[in-house]
Simulated scan of single mutants.
Amino acid sequence: MTNAPPRIAIVWRGDRDARRAATPQNNRFHRIFEELAAVGLAPEPAVFDEEFADEVLEQLLAVDAVLVWVNPLDDGKTRKILDPLLRQVAVTGRFISAHPDVILMMGVKEVLYETRHIGWGVDTRLYRTATDFRQAFVPTFLAAGPRVLKQNRGNAGQGIWKVELIGAPADGETLISVLEAKSGSVPEAIDLSDFISRCESYFTEDGCIVDQPFQSRLPEGMIRCYLSGSRVVGFGQQLVKALVTPPSGPGREPLQPGPRIMNPASAEPFQTLRTRMEREWTPEMMSTLGIEAASLPIIWDADFLYGPPDASGNDTYVLCEINVSSVFAIPDEAPAEIARAMASRLIGPQ
């Protein structure tokens, strides 16, 4: 009699009907299901919603590992119920990717401040209270030029703002232009003090704001470096339009991003970035944050903008965020790498 293959629950958000109907084939993660099965694992859907959280908990306590794809903010819903549930499952010894505590170290904007000394870092400030923000940001902004402000947790560009001075302060007011990274946003002229008041909500529930200089090479695009554990599994390159000021004038439309072009880990244009991520920056991040290799997410990505060329004219790279909670879409090679990593953990080296 042979042992049953290890069971892997794949968690994503959906309603009751979606949970009833879910199969390994009828969802966007079907390639991951296929690759996990191909290496001798038994993946199963585990659609989550707060309405039936107890039912999901019961399911997760019956499997051997859990892979989670749930955004921190999704149509007004958060992970306030899901994260404690996952911690409860993790305490029993089951592998959770990504563990909520790892997300709180890696997958928040504060990581940009904590790792600012690494080669991907720039002049990054952190404000933990509204008072600190009001007192410290203004002189930095007035002296340093355009900045990008980021609330600690979010997705889809929510709470990420380009802030730029329109004119010299006059009559007690400082007029600025703000542009949110959320799709469909257009620039807005507002008094600096009023904008700071608008941002006070980002400090609730131990929130914070991270402040970085705006990168002038943003129109050249963003490179998304995908990793499974500490191993690069592919790249995505995209001409982003978030925080790029659209043309002014009547009938102006919000700019739309270009397609994300996926590339394998071996793609020649990205080998310098790959080497730095695998040999330098990921180990340095792990050491700084106190994350062990076994706790790294099964899939995550680091988003880079082009920084100023170095003295030799070579590209530099500036980290603008790390995504952990719900990394998808992914390169074609990534599902097999995810399966290999899971099989190595649960069965043994492949």
Results as ranks from 00 to 15, higher is better:
192 L>G: 10
219 P>T: 04
145 G>L: 02
249 G>C: 01
251 G>L: 00
250 P>N: 06
144 A>D: 15
45 P>A: 01
254 P>C: 11
200 E>I: 02
14 G>R: 10
319 L>W: 11
100 P>H: 12
3 N>K: 13
136 A>P: 04
60 L>M: 07
6 P>T: 02
132 D>A: 07
293 A>Y: 12
318 V>R: 11
53 A>P: 05
255 L>D: 06
185 S>G: 05
240 V>I: 10
342 M>P: 11
177 S>W: 09
212 Q>S: 03
214 F>G: 01
122 V>D: 07
127 Y>C: 01
54 D>S: 09
150 K>L: 00
183 S>I: 09
245 T>V: 15
256 Q>A: 12
14 G>K: 02
142 L>K: 12
337 E>K: 02
318 V>M: 02
287 S>I: 03
14 G>N: 13
3 N>T: 12
66 V>I: 08
295 S>M: 13
246 P>M: 01
149 L>A: 13
224 R>D: 07
10 I>N: 04
245 T>H: 09
114 E>H: 13
330 I>R: 03
285 M>N: 07
201 S>D: 14
105 M>P: 05
71 N>P: 05
173 E>P: 03
19 R>W: 11
349 P>R: 14
69 W>G: 04
124 T>I: 02
330 I>T: 15
244 V>Q: 05
171 D>S: 10
267 A>H: 14
216 S>Y: 09
341 A>S: 11
141 F>T: 09
126 L>V: 09
216 S>F: 06
36 L>F: 13
224 R>A: 06
95 F>E: 14
262 M>S: 15
275 T>K: 14
325 S>M: 06
199 C>G: 05
52 F>M: 04
190 I>T: 04
152 N>P: 00
109 K>N: 10
23 T>V: 00
304 F>R: 04
315 D>H: 03
52 F>N: 03
95 F>W: 15
330 I>E: 07
275 T>H: 13
59 Q>L: 05
58 E>N: 15
156 A>M: 01
222 M>N: 10
191 D>T: 05
269 P>E: 14
320 C>F: 08
315 D>E: 09
278 E>R: 07
95 F>T: 03
204 T>I: 07
210 V>Q: 13
321 E>K: 01
101 D>G: 06
11 V>P: 12
179 L>S: 06
234 G>H: 07
100 P>L: 07
192 L>Y: 12
185 S>K: 01
350 Q>S: 10
199 C>W: 06
59 Q>D: 11
43 P>V: 00
164 E>S: 12
119 G>K: 07
26 N>I: 05
309 P>W: 01
339 A>D: 04
186 V>K: 14
285 M>I: 15
229 G>L: 08
186 V>D: 06
35 E>I: 02
127 Y>P: 06
103 I>Q: 13
83 D>N: 11
251 G>E: 09
204 T>H: 11
86 L>F: 04
52 F>S: 03
195 F>H: 14
218 L>P: 00
127 Y>E: 04
42 A>K: 08
248 S>P: 04
191 D>W: 01
